[in-house]
Structures are given as C-alpha cells and as structure tokens.
C-alpha cells in the first residue's frame, strides 16, 4: 500500500477514525489504571499513618526529577508532530529521538530507585518488608505494581516511538499523512498523565 501514488493512497484514509480508535484504546488503559487508583485510595483510607511512614522511604528528589523528565518528553513528542506538519522531517525525527532518550533517562532513574530499595530489603515478599505493619506492606505492594505497570508502558512507548522514527525516515509518515505519529503521541501523553497522578500520591505524602 505504501508504494502507491499519493492520490491513490489517500482513497481509503480515515484519520479521524484512526484517532478515535486510539482514544477508545486509551479508555481501556484508563480503566486498567483507574482500578488500581481505587485500590490505592481504599488502602490509604484504611492505613493513613502507615502510608505516611512508608512514603518517607521514597526519594522525593528522584521523583520530582523523573516528573520533569516525563513532562519534557511529552513536549518533544508534541513538537515532533508540529515539525512533520511543517515538512521538517529531520527535525521531527530529532524530536522523536529526544523523546526516546528522555524516556530512557526516566527508566534509568527508576532502575536505580528500585535497586536501592532492593538493597534495603524492600521488595514484595522480602523478610524486611513482611516484618513491617500491614499498611506499609500494602503501600509498597501498590508502589511496585503501579509504578511497575507504568514503567512497562514507558518501555512500550519507547519501542512504539522507535518504530515511528523508522516510519518517518522511510516516508511512511509524511507531512500529509502522520496519523500514526499522532496516535503514538496520544499514547505517550496518557503515560505522562498517569505519572502526573502517581507522583503526588506516592512521593509527596508528608
């Protein structure tokens, strides 16, 4: 299909439908994470003091830094779409690459954060953790599941954007056909939104 001439390739295009399909998928993601946020609020309601204590173990500076990284990556993703709209192909690829680099930075921070916790013996099912009160065990259970699932989404997003970079350089994504890049962008921004909520709920309980 990609080898066809421009006029022909446009015949069966439905960009609005494609974006709407992406939004429908994002709603399923909303339900997936929404369920976890409900779990979080119920347990926070049940163990308010333990949540306060446990949250002190988390590094607010690393959390804030990662928030800034993810917000900036959302910016570069949005800019890459403007660039392709303005026929600045190389610039668009550069912004997409920057997005992946920032996402990688986020994951590297997460890696150090998690390994530091592991060194302190705080991981699901560890003896140190199981010796703690029930509320703290639940807090770290939720922490690992929710930030872990979010991290998985960041990894998937990185692969997705890498594929978009390839599509842009091979001319599948062009200045008048970029709905794939837009959909990847929508996914990336959703991952950002989820972090916008995870950050204060886990790192900023004082």
């Amino acid at each position: 299909m990609s080898s066809q001439e421009h006029a022909v390739a446009h015949a069966h295009r439905d960009d609005i439908g494609a974006r709407m399909g992406m939004w429908l998928f994002l709603f399923t993601e909303l339900i997936l994470f929404g369920g976890m946020f409900i779990l979080y609020s119920v347990y926070r309601y049940k163990y308010p003091d333990a949540f306060h204590l446990a949250a002190k173990e988390l590094n607010t500076i690393v959390g804030t830094f990662n928030t800034a990284i993810l917000l900036t990556s959302s910016l570069t993703m949005a800019l890459s779409i403007t660039a392709i709209q303005r026929k600045q192909k190389a610039l668009s690829i550069f912004f997409q690459m920057l997005t992946i680099v920032l996402a990688l930075g986020f994951m590297v921070n997460k890696y150090f954060e998690w390994t530091a916790k592991f060194h302190h013996g705080i991981y699901p099912g560890s003896e140190t953790l199981l010796a703690q009160p029930a509320g703290e065990i639940v807090f770290f259970g939720l922490y690992y599941v929710m930030t872990g699932l979010h991290g998985l989404h960041v990894l998937i997003g990185m692969v997705l954007i890498a594929v978009m970079m390839r599509f842009t350089s091979t001319g599948i994504i062009t200045s008048d056909s970029y709905v794939k890049l837009e959909s990847a962008g929508l996914y990336w921004h959703l991952v950002d939104i989820i972090w916008i909520f995870l950050f204060p709920l886990f790192y900023l309980i004082t």
Partner: peptide
C-alpha cells in the same frame, strides 16, 4: 490540593498536547 493541581496539569495535557481543543465535539 495535590489532586486539584494534578487535574489542572491533566487538563492542559488533554487539551493542548492531545489536541482535544481542536478535535470535533464528538471527541
């Protein structure tokens, strides 16, 4: 307070980054 600020941030991402401001009413 934290949730209100997070909601404002989400609103900005949804409307501008995710183009909802310029999408049709259906979206």
């Amino acid at each position: 307070t934290a949730l209100v600020i997070a909601s404002i941030k989400t609103y900005l991402v949804l409307t501008i980054f995710m183009h909802l401001r310029s999408e049709s009413k259906t979206f």
